[in-house]
Design a protein around this nucleic acid. Sequence first.
DNA 1: TTCATTTATCGAATATCGTCGATTTACGAT
DNA 2: ATCGTAAATCGACGATATTCGATAAATGAA
Lengths: 106, 106
Amino acid sequence: MPLPRADAEEYASWFRALADATRIQIVSLLARRRAPMSVGEIVAASGVGQSTVSHHLKILAEVRFVLVERQGTSSLYRINENCVSCFPTAADVVMGNPVPSAPTCE
Amino acid sequence: MPLPRADAEEYASWFRALADATRIQIVSLLARRRAPMSVGEIVAASGVGQSTVSHHLKILAEVRFVLVERQGTSSLYRINENCVSCFPTAADVVMGNPVPSAPTCE
DNA sequence: TTCATTTATCGAATATCGTCGATTTACGAT
DNA sequence: ATCGTAAATCGACGATATTCGATAAATGAA
């Protein structure tokens, strides 16, 4: 009768991706410049360590919130507009709308 | 130039409230029955310990996602429709829309 | 007041998370 | 092949979070 645990976990993993201030700053950074950014640029703009940025980018990429493309020696990250628009809302949660699993939304 | 840290923290605290599977189950439970539920009912329906449920309800109440009302010896919790609708979307985040602070939205 | 019931809080164990410095890997240039 | 740069991974540490059992606080009934 309650929301199945698996669905709840799926929802939670979405929200967890945006549950950290540094990740939100990175996401908003990538969204303002519409152009892809290298890790180095993000490090410079965000003011946290390189390994930390890399770690957060990995988490964001796992839910397809950002997309990566290697260009030579650097990795270019950009926002995934598709994933932004299919990110579940609070209303989706309380209504029990079908959970868009991350890989599905692009 | 980047999103101010304070705004990022505010956003993050919103998403953190729904970043746990148990809390999502509780929220969806309260939303399905439109009527208020006692802690005991939520405990029975969710299958986790009483102190755990009480803890999660406190977190959800702090962001005004649920509302409490003591009725005799029991506490009745219900979903806060206002807070559901003003919960930030991913689009809000990437666009840097003004952050609705929890106490503001009812 | 005393008792029973319901909920909140406390204390502790465990797990997860965020961050950093150091190292490793990947890649291009020399 | 060697070097240099950029990014990913590793290992560790402290901070937070989740969960539980036990206890305390609140409330109504006897």
